[in-house]
């Protein structure tokens, strides 16, 4: 089954002169893979994920998801996306927000499903509280919940562990690992390498818009203390090469 295919994708912005945030990116991610997309701040991770979910379009190149493109409604019905620091309608409760999302997916009887999802992200106790009262960790979990509401084939997560305390990170990691057990395809951005090493099957490293490494965490770590050490080395080498 088709997964994610990124073919020679470049994204260029014209503000303050021409500025490419993603340069000639090519990636093939089969279904059932948990793919970690790593890079320093400003490397192009979020720009890539935005193109994958249809929030922006590549200046050059093509993106294929599940045999279609991110613009296809039928494709978007089968993906889930959790943006970095997701923002919600603060006056709605958690349950109301998920009901709103469920309606967009035209779910006929969403209540039972919503209750299950809220329980799975440990928000059952807060479902009737307004979202503006939620903590950072609760917001992240709700972000994950809305991404799962349609039982997606592919899940895009942008910094899902960002800003969480150790307990919060542990909870979200547990959820992602459970999804991995279910065979979900997950594409996730992060710069917390220890977590990536723990969760991901394959890792891609991007720096200044260029893909500089693409392999399993174990392979990349050969000759290095750990993935973090390998990451720093790869980035330094890449910058020397492109300097």
């Amino acid at each position: 089954m088709h997964g994610i295919t990124i073919q020679n994708v470049t994204k260029t912005y014209l503000t303050n002169g021409e500025h490419s945030v993603v340069k000639n990116l090519t990636l093939e991610i089969p279904m059932g893979t948990v793919f970690g997309f790593l890079g320093p701040n400003g490397a192009g991770k979020t720009s890539t994920i935005k193109m994958l979910v249809g929030l922006s379009r590549p200046t050059e190149g093509t993106i294929s998801l599940l045999g279609g493109t991110p613009d296809d409604i039928s494709v978007r019905a089968r993906i889930g996306f959790m943006p970095e620091s997701p923002a919600f309608y603060g006056y709605l409760t958690g349950k109301e927000f998920l009901e709103f999302i469920a309606k967009i997916f035209k779910q006929a009887h969403p209540n039972h499903h919503i209750e299950e999802i809220l329980k799975s992200v440990d928000l059952g106790h807060a479902k009737n509280k307004q979202i503006r009262t939620y903590s950072k960790g609760m917001l992240q979990r709700l972000g994950l919940a809305q991404a799962l509401i349609n039982n997606p084939d592919i899940l895009f997560l942008d910094e899902p562990l960002d800003g969480l305390d150790p307990l919060g990170r542990a909870e979200v990691k547990k959820i992602i690992l459970a999804l991995k057990e279910q065979g979900k395809t997950i594409f996730f951005n992060s710069h917390i390498l220890a977590d990536v090493e723990e969760i991901c099957d394959v890792v891609g490293i991007i720096d200044k818009g260029v893909l500089v490494a693409h392999d399993t965490p174990q392979s990349l770590s050969i000759g290095h203390k750990d993935l973090e050490d390998a990451f720093v080395h790869i980035i330094e080498q890449s910058r020397k090469q492109y300097a």
Partner: peptide
């Protein structure tokens, strides 16, 4: 950025 949660949906 509440649109980030809506636009990637089938809408």
């Amino acid at each position: 950025k509440t649109f980030f949660l809506i636009l990637p949906k089938p809408i």
